[in-house]
Each structure stands twice: as C-alpha cells, then as structure tokens.
Design a protein around this nucleic acid. Structure first.
Lengths: 104, 104
DNA sequence: CTCTTCTGTAAGTTCAAACTAACATTTGAA
DNA sequence: TTCAAATGTTAGTTTGAACTTACAGAAGAG
C-alpha cells in the first residue's frame, strides 16, 4: 500500500493522473503534455501507475490507451480512513479475532 | 499536498506514525524503536512529519513529545476523495463559478 | 556555574529512483 | 514482404532523499 501511495506522490505521475481524470488517452499523446521530459520516462511512469492499479490499459492497433482506475484511489482512501479513525481500528481488531476463532 | 502524501509514503515515517497512533512519545523513545537507523535520522523524519502537519510537538523539560495529528490524514483523505469522486468534482466546479460571479 | 540528558542541526556520503539515448517489439498499411 | 507508426525495454547517468558522523543548543540536577 505504501508503494501505491508513493506512486501517486510523484509530481509527474500525479500530473498524468490529473490529465487522465477527464479523458482516456494513448501513451504518445500523454507524453506530448510533458515536453520537458522524454517519452520513455513517461512510459515508465505509466508502467508504475498501471502496476499499482491506478490505470487501466487497453490496446487499439499500435496504440495503448490509458484510463483512470478509480478503485486504486479508493483503496488508498480507505486505507487512510482505517488508519485515522480509531473506531474503525477497533472494529477491524474485533473482526480479526473472530477470524482467529474460526481458524482454531 | 503531494509533499504531504510523499511524507507518509516513506516506510520509516509511516512506521513512526503507526507507533504514535496509540500513544504519544518523546523523540528519544521513538528512536529506540528503530535500532537499524540512527537517532538523527529519526529526528529528521519527525521534522518532515511535523512540517506536513502530521504530528504535534510539545516540550516537557528537555524532552520533545510527539503526538499524532489526525487532521493531516483527514486532509489527504479528503483530497483523494475529491480527486476520485466525479460528483464532488462537479460540485466543486459549481461552487467556484458561484464564487466568480460574486467577485464580478 | 558545571555537568548531564535530550534533542536538533550541519556537512558530507550513499543509494534508489527518475531520467536520457539507443535499441527492440508489435501492429497495420502499401 | 517491407516500411512506418506507436510504444515498450535496456543500459547507463544524474539527481534527490535518506542516512551517518560530528557538532551545537537547551533545559534541569547538583
């Protein structure tokens, strides 16, 4: 989970996510939005985002079209909620004990 | 905000936050929980967490006691919710237009 | 005062991650 | 086939963040 959080915290990667929030886009077009960095660099960022379930990839001919994957964000969102909210913490602890009793 | 997200994504810093989730603690005692890294390293992590509003600091004699600051987490949580949820996005856009009309 | 305890700060090192340049792969078109 | 377009991958470089060592400062005890 920390890896996923780190994935979105990189400025370039977050800019990519912002770009894809409103519309899906092929890799090449994404790269044109970042003239200061090379296309391979963007490609590597896309791979990281994809591996962390923050993007979907689909192929159309030679193009690879990337699309935001909301669940990835929701996972982080939920993780933080659980960390932060002590009541949820306690509920989780109870659930885990329940689980243990079942296994025993 | 990205800086804050990056702050919690470091494994050592997140471990510090986990440690402080249940109880506040002076800097020295925090450091003892991380025998593999030096005390100054922990001190630097504490500074980063403090600067990002993830920790409170209070002084007692020569000790500096650190305590979790839930709002910091809530800020990230809310930021992701807004990014992720398209309905909230639209509501925000409407609110901003409203604001503009008032200024004009 | 002086000493000790607890801690932060500064300077320099190390290492992982982001980057570039060159090459490889895949797909469709002629 | 052959070529071009779109993209990924690899190898090596660069840069920034985490780290260590050494030093500095602040607060109480004696």
């Amino acid at each position: 989970m920390l890896e996923k959080i780190q994935a979105i915290s990189d400025p370039t990667r977050f800019a990519i996510l912002e770009l894809l929030r409103d519309q899906e886009m092929p890799a090449g077009k994404i790269a044109t939005h970042f003239p200061s960095i090379s296309r391979p660099a963007v490609s590597q960022h896309l791979r990281i985002l994809k591996h962390n379930n923050l993007l979907w990839e689909r192929r159309e001919g030679t193009k690879r079209i990337y699309r935001l994957r909301p669940k990835g964000f929701y996972d982080i969102y939920q993780f933080l909620e659980e960390f932060w909210d002590p009541r949820l913490q306690k509920l989780k602890a109870v659930a885990e004990k329940e689980e243990e009793r079942k296994r025993a």
